[in-house]
């Protein structure tokens, strides 16, 4: 897992209109490692990923920062139907990657069938001749992954690739992405709003809030000993056994407008333990334990997370 660095991002800023929706994000992913990025809508997680892939929506621009991909990157989106070409048989769609690199047509087609087999599509030779609309959501997403693999990426960028799928199919795709990462030694960046999904594939996780990273560390460490009050609250809001609705933890207030600028901590207005410092001074990322950092003034004295009722 301690491969060479495959992706480096430093000081990334993404501007939307007059403000910045991503306000200085830095990250690094090694070959064979999966980094999860978690956040709610408006946190900047998807724009960060799209800036890395250079596929920002119209009117949204990369204002600052460096993105270095060692090798090639490829992206898998949430809605395969909007990315697949409805007028192309899926085998030809996958073959476009190798074709664009000068691989002869027959060879590229053969490669497409191999890739369909690699991503677990049954009867790959038959399925290669299918049209996108003939496939289920889960199969379409496997086709998208095969098309991404066709460019031999060193970095696979996944933007909520399983969100639109049934949990049973989601579990299959998460296992597939995990297997491909391990077998190919690919770096994977996996963006999701769902902490539990990320915990199934990512060795490291980054939590974003209002355009900034607020916590980063090994996934299990962050889930078990979250250091940022926002991460703690996010974990506590997930319904769990023994906690009936009516007693679920909620986070007061609403997330700020993505382009809003703060002098202090963006989470302070919603934070139960905020003090004067929090609104006047933005906390830097502080190391809690080696490899686990959080952007909170009180990182050294984390509040114990409320144990589940059965936990004690």
């Amino acid at each position: 897992m301690s491969g060479d660095t495959a992706l480096e991002v430093r000081g990334l800023q993404v501007s939307v209109g007059s403000g910045h929706a991503v306000k200085g994000v830095s990250l690094g992913v090694r070959a064979g490692e999966c980094l999860g990025i978690v956040g709610e809508s408006g946190s900047g997680k998807s724009l960060t990923l799209r800036a890395v892939a250079d596929v920002l929506p119209r009117g949204v621009t990369r204002a600052a920062g460096d993105v270095v991909v060692h090798g090639r990157s490829a992206m898998v989106f949430q809605e395969p139907m909007t990315t697949l070409n409805p007028t192309m048989r899926v085998g030809d769609f996958i073959a476009e990657g190798p074709r664009s690199r000068g691989v002869p047509k027959r060879e590229a087609r053969r490669r497409a069938v191999e890739l369909l087999a690699e991503v677990g599509v049954p009867d790959p030779a038959v399925r290669a001749r299918a049209w996108p609309h003939q496939l289920s959501g889960g199969l379409r997403q496997r086709v998208m992954i095969a098309a991404a693999l066709a460019v031999e990426p060193s970095v696979l960028l996944c933007d909520e690739p399983t969100t639109a799928l049934d949990t049973t199919v989601q579990a299959q795709l998460l296992a597939l992405i995990d297997r491909l990462r391990a077998e190919r030694g690919m770096a994977v960046v996996f963006v999701s709003h769902n902490l539990a999904v990320v915990s199934r594939v990512a060795q490291r996780v980054m939590v974003m809030y209002a355009g900034r990273v607020v916590e980063e560390g090994p996934t299990q460490e962050v889930l078990r000993r979250p250091r940022h009050p926002y991460t703690q609250a996010l974990i506590e809001t997930i319904p769990r056994r023994g906690v009936a609705a009516g007693q679920l933890t909620t986070i007061q207030g609403a997330p700020p407008d993505p382009s809003e600028e703060f002098t202090g901590c963006a989470f302070a207005p919603r934070c139960a333990r905020a003090e004067d410092t929090c609104t006047s001074l933005r906390p830097p990322m502080l190391e809690a334990v080696p490899g686990h950092t959080a952007g909170c003034h009180f990182v050294a004295a984390p509040r114990a997370i409320a144990p589940s009722k059965e936990g004690v």
Binding site: G138, T167, T168, A171, D178, S199, R200
Partner: peptide, 22 residues
């Protein structure tokens, strides 16, 4: 369904419990 449902307990990707699609 219970096994496929994501929860914060798993430490690693578990084997998919159901093959195929509905």
């Amino acid at each position: 369904l219970l096994a496929a449902s994501p929860s914060l307990e798993e430490t690693a990707a578990v084997a998919p419990p159901l093959t195929g699609e509905p």
